[in-house]
Structures are given as structure tokens and as C-alpha cells.
Design a protein around this nucleic acid. Sequence first.
DNA 1: CTTCGTTGTCTAGCGGTGCTAGGGTCGAGT
DNA 2: ACTCGACCCTAGCACCGCTAGACAACGAAG
Lengths: 192, 192
Amino acid sequence: MSVQERKQRERAERERLIVATARELAEQQGWDAVTTRRLAERIEYSQPVLYSHFRGKREIIGAVALQGATEMAVAMRAATAAADGPRARVHALARAYLAFAERNPAVYDAIFQLDGGLAYAREDTPEPLKDAFAALLESLGEVAGDGVEPGLFTEVFWASLHGVTTLTRSGRLPPEETERRVRLLVDRLPVV
Amino acid sequence: MSVQERKQRERAERERLIVATARELAEQQGWDAVTTRRLAERIEYSQPVLYSHFRGKREIIGAVALQGATEMAVAMRAATAAADGPRARVHALARAYLAFAERNPAVYDAIFQLDGGLAYAREDTPEPLKDAFAALLESLGEVAGDGVEPGLFTEVFWASLHGVTTLTRSGRLPPEETERRVRLLVDRLPVV
DNA sequence: CTTCGTTGTCTAGCGGTGCTAGGGTCGAGT
DNA sequence: ACTCGACCCTAGCACCGCTAGACAACGAAG
């Protein structure tokens, strides 16, 4: 028994190592640099070991996405907890969202851009993703306004933040004005 | 002279063929399926011929993006021309934007997601991209509201549409509610 | 009309990718 | 002490973007 348990522990530890290494490599050099060979070399195992933990590269991205979503939810809740009043909460939320994306671009991509094989917006959506959306909903739902479903409002505000994030990071929007763009969204979309 | 001219014509014709074929293949099977080998086979030339027209795959994506941006500007202007009043124009614009993205997903990606080696938001930005932004600006600038630069407002509205588009297409937002999301943006962001 | 040189295209190949088949090693359980 | 199964590695597949170098076709010059 004890031997099996030790092996299971070691296996789980190695899986964490894979995910952490993939994330690290992605943040350092971008997801294109995360190849199965490089990843295998960094964890000091051969390539096929990766496939005994994950079906393929896609699932590794998915694992990073789930980890990231959990952290992002925490970050957003921490930011909104300190804010006073609905609009201030929304503002704090938006800034936290953009800050997370800027500090963890590769993780952000794993969650919101890349294909990690995850189900979104469904019943079988993984808990971390649901929870990240819930974190958005907690602050945005209260400013949806009459006749607008909180969920729908949250989706729209989220999409706007996502658009600003991705267009800015790909060089399609000049980064200097980000704060003014956010203020415009926070001023106009919510109903307080 | 005439011989050289004929060769130039043929060369230009072949370049159009490459771009059209890349676009077609991308729309049919996605950009991942657009490999230099497949593309070469479809135009019935060898791979190196592609490299006598474009520096690499990236530039081919860029060429598709420019072509698409031109078409998109035309589509948006056509949609807004028929609309009556500022808010109706914005609504028509938004619907035209999303319709273009839905009908030409690969082209949309070439313009707004992939790296086509193009400069955005700068003086040396290619004319088609500037013009597509100008088409947005024409309808959105007039509803920016007091104290908000038309350009900034356009960027924000555009980013919101982009967010809705990409999140929906990647399965992160359920597609059924798109129309309601657009209406929310059109109701709240502009100042009429 | 022949020769030369340029222009254009092709074949072949480089180093990389994600992924997998199959063999060998090593250690746990009898 | 031996068997057997779990585990991991080497090697290789088919594909990728891209390029070097051979070769053919053709206009210009003698």
C-alpha cells in the first residue's frame, strides 16, 4: 500500500512540475516556445512521459488555464473587496482584470485565447472557470440596470475588457490610453 | 518591353492567385491547414515560388488581412449609409461588423488576431487598415459624447465588438444572445 | 545561328514540430 | 529467488516553415 501511495504522490508531484514548467516557459518565451521536447528536457524526463499525464499539448494548456483562472478569481475578489460602492467596485475589477492579463500574458492566453480543450459556458464547464466568471458577476451583476440580466451584462463587460486586452497586447491599440478606455467603459456601461 | 510587361502581369496574377487560394483554404479548413506545401500544391507551383512573392507565411496572412480590411470597410459603410439617425447608424455598424466576422472568420482572424507582420495604430499603418478604422470612426465619432475624443470612443466600441466576436467564436460565450449583447452596447456606450 | 548570361522554377534537404510504437530495465509481490 | 508487470526511454513517423543549389528556358549579343 505505502509503496503505491508514494508512487501516486510522486506522479502527482511530477504532474504539477509539468504544468508549472509549461507555464514558466510560456511566460518567458511565449507559447510557441513550449514544445514537447523543450518541456520534457526541462523536467528532465523524456517526451512520452508527458503523454502519460496529458493527452497532448492542448491538455497542458488547459491545465495552465485552470490554474490561472483560479488565481485570477482570487485577484479580482481581492481587488473588489477593498472598493467602496458599486461603481468603484467595477473600476477596481476592471483594473485588476487588465493587471492580471498584463502580468500573466501567457496564462491569460491559455484561459481566453488558446484551445485548451476546455468546455466554456456549459454545465460541464470546469469549476475554476465558472468561479472566475462568478467573481466577475459578483461586482457586475449589481450594476446591470433594470431589465438587463446580470449574466448578460457581465458577459458584455467582460467581452469589452477582453477586447481591450487583446487588441492592446497585439499592438492594435496604443497602450498609453488604456486607463482612459477603461474609465469610459466604467462610466458608460454600468447603471448605478 | 512587351515581354517584360506580360511577365509582370502574369506575376501579379499569380500573386493574386496565392492570396485568393490562401484565403479560400483558410476559410474552408482554418489557418492551421494553410501550409506552404498545401498552398503550393493548390496553385500548382512548387513551394519556393511562394517565397519569391512573399517573405513567408506571415506576409501571406498580411496580404489576406489587407484585402479583408478593404472589404470590411466597404461593408460597414454600406450598412451605415442606409441607417437613419446616429444610434441607428451605430446599431447597423455593429451588426455589419459582427456579420462580417461571422461570414469571414479566417479573414477576420488575419486582420485582428494573427500576426501578418502589419503595423497597426501608427503613421506607417497600411491604408486599408487605416480606412477600416476610419469607417468605424465615421459613425462612432458623432456619438462619443462631450469630453471624449472620437478616436478613443471608437477604439473602445471597436474593442467591445472584438471581444464579443472572439469570445463567441471560441465558444466562450453562447452565440444565441449575441443580438442582445450588441443592443446593450449600442444602448449604453454612445451618447446621442 | 550560335553562344552567353539571366531569369525562373524545381528537387531535395535542413532543423524543427506533435505524437507514438516497441523494447528494455527495474523493482514489488509471491 | 524468480516472475511479471509497471514504467520509461530510444527511435521514428509524418508533417511544418524555409532554403540551397541544380537545371531549364529564353532574350540579347556576336
